[in-house]
Nucleic acid binder design. Sequence first.
DNA 1: CAACCCCTTCACGTAGGCTTGAAGGCAAGA
DNA 2: TCTTGCCTTCAAGCCTACGTGAAGGGGTTG
Lengths: 140, 140
Amino acid sequence: MTELTVGELARRTGVAASALRYWDTVGLLPATRVSGQRRYPESAVALVGAILLLRDAGFSLEEQKALAAARPADPGEWRRLARRKQAELDDQIATAQAARDALDHALRCGHPDVHDCPTFRAIAAARLSGKPLREAHTHH
Amino acid sequence: MTELTVGELARRTGVAASALRYWDTVGLLPATRVSGQRRYPESAVALVGAILLLRDAGFSLEEQKALAAARPADPGEWRRLARRKQAELDDQIATAQAARDALDHALRCGHPDVHDCPTFRAIAAARLSGKPLREAHTHH
DNA sequence: CAACCCCTTCACGTAGGCTTGAAGGCAAGA
DNA sequence: TCTTGCCTTCAAGCCTACGTGAAGGGGTTG
């Protein structure tokens, strides 16, 4: 009754059914079975929301699995993971902000070609001796 | 003299030579040839800095090619692209900030299990009716 | 001449998170 | 019974931005 099929959950969340099946097979969002078919409780809708939120936060599916496993069992570990990711998010925000500011300057400074703008050049040059950041993102 | 080989440019910028060759083959950072070998002007160092910066900004290599093509030829188009990406960055920052705040709340609110926290549930629920954002990122 | 070092191309591998297609099952309605 | 519609599995493909390894060229030094 209150059980949803993949298709219904897909419709309610906007997540493709194929993705939900994938999440089931990798163990991120397990489903029960009724005569071979996946069934999800109503509460799965909220779970999907949380998954999307954490995905936006930059948690990979593997990380989310680790998080989900640690959540009820080991609150200390959960907090540790959360804090680590929070730091990553701070880096990410700072970098995005820097890039945004660089674009902002390029749009405002009036130079017809950005590469003629000394400020832009300075920011770009700083990037060469700066933090890689992509490695933090590429890292698994 | 002032011409650099891939290896030298790699050393000066910290970017792998294989990556620089790749950037050449896809047309992002073209090199001239001297008896078959790639040669880059000194100014390429600054270009690499700009490429890294824009990459951080979320420009894909394809987007950067479009950007580079529009830069000297069509400043209006350049500004259009820059503004569009700026808007994307704003979205990205807002989302990252929301995720960060959600984690922050989860860490502070004292609920042993985040899913018991009504605030967290509300944020996650909001994500379901929010902007996909991933589509903007998946789009080319 | 050989050693060395850097360069070349080409093809394939990798990772993450799915999507797509083929081939088929099961239950309700006409 | 046949059709409709939603479900299943499995294999393979896709996308980005490279990394890797093989096989070979070329120039300088000892």
